[in-house]
Amino acid sequence: MKIESTNKVKRGLAEMLKGGVIMDVVNAEQARIAEKAGASAVMALERIPADIRADGGVARMSSVGVIQEVMDSVSIPVMAKARIGHFVEAQILDSLGIDFMDESEVLTPADEVNHINKQNFKAPFVCGATGLGEATRRIAEGASMIRTKGEAGTGNVVEAVRHMRTIINELNEVIACDENEVVALSKKFRAPLHVLEEIKELKKLPVVNFAAGGIATPADAALMMQLGCDGVFVGSGIFKSGDPAERAEAIVIATTNFNDPKVLAEISKDLGEPMVGINIDTLSEEEKLAKRGW
């Protein structure tokens, strides 16, 4: 007996990525640098979020050529992004045999009402969330992994921290509540009742929860791990910095040793320039990627 693409197999890959770092890359060379630095997966993109932000215009799924180039160059799992609601981009990625798909607010949304029905695909999905309601809605649609939205391409961790704290506080509210309160909390968070019931039973989210959006230094990665996330995505923070290979490696070590300030101090030495950050309050509402998705 053999069944592929079950929920358990999809969520299982996310379990294997835990404690690791998933890095944005735009070509085979960067993918190999990431793999060598100890990335547990790479995200194949045409442009990293900081450049998408700077260039403006419509951001779409990366070209198939870039994605295949990255898939052919490394032995670790390869992820790629589809626009929110763009189920045909997801169909294309699925047919390429991608290991994981990210229905991502970093790209320009294709549907302002509906997210992709993620149950229909062979590859698992990761989705961004700013709070428990959004996380549980994505899980109900079939997401096998959740990440904070943060504010991608800014090198500013403040939004990722806000989203992580919100998710954890709301999770704790559900876990601690009286069973008669679950329906009211489901209304309060606009969270599907069956997912909240699963959370109450497991005393945690039913899927892995990573940090993403603005992580630029080993200390940022360790901060997110200490706040309780299962691993980190690093986008622009690596290949927009002075020495990408060194920084990538340092962030990997920081994610494993997040509780050891001595190690964190040692690996933070001589790292070169971090990416230049952006203050969130200088961004207009339309420029905030975390507002995308619902």
Partner: peptide, 20 residues
């Protein structure tokens, strides 16, 4: 790749079960 990952029947010593 991941799309070929599966749950399959395994005989582990004298027991049969389904594992990932």
């Amino acid at each position: 790749r991941q799309t070929e990952s599966f749950e399959g029947s395994v005989s582990f010593y004298d027991n049969n079960d389904i594992y990932c």
